[in-house]
Simulated assay, not measured.
Amino acid sequence: MPQPIFSTDRYKLYPSPRNTVREVFLHEVFVPHPYALVDPPSYDPRGRWSLFVAHRLSDGRNGQLVTFELEADAVRFIERFVP
């Protein structure tokens, strides 16, 4: 059964079925490529992570939102991600 849609102040979010937790962590990375393959485990995160299809409310742009529990994981993702 699909997980429900929910919103934050900045995004409308659709959780990935691959999430082990359905939580929006403090360190967010918006990927403005809605069809890019984003695989957070391949970036070796040390903490928990979550992935969402995202609609950014400020400009109506669609993409993906990856959130990380640890700031170092978000930095590693930004450095390594190539769409």
Rank of each mutant, 00 (worst) to 15 (best):
V38H: 00
F25N: 08
Q64Y: 00
F68H: 03
P2S: 05
L13A: 06
V82Q: 07
F25Q: 05
N62P: 02
V31F: 10
S7K: 02
P4M: 13
D39L: 08
F81I: 10
D9T: 10
L65R: 01
F77V: 06
E79Q: 09
K12L: 13
Q3K: 10
F81Y: 15
L51Q: 01
F25S: 07
L65H: 01
E71R: 08
W49P: 03
E28N: 11
F25K: 03
E69A: 07
L57K: 15
S42Y: 07
T8G: 05
R48D: 14
A36D: 12
I5M: 00
R61V: 15
I78N: 02
L70H: 05
T20H: 05
Q64V: 10
V24T: 12
Y35T: 02
R22Q: 15
V53A: 13
W49C: 04
R80S: 15
P83E: 14
I78G: 03
R56M: 08
F30Q: 02
P15T: 08
E79F: 13
E23I: 15
D39P: 01
L57R: 06
D9R: 09
S42N: 12
V75I: 13
E79S: 12
N62S: 15
K12M: 09
V53E: 05
E69Y: 10
K12Y: 05
V75Y: 10
F77E: 00
E23N: 08
V29F: 00
R48N: 11
S16G: 08
N19W: 12
L51Y: 06
L51C: 08
E23H: 07
F6Y: 04
P45E: 13
E69H: 06
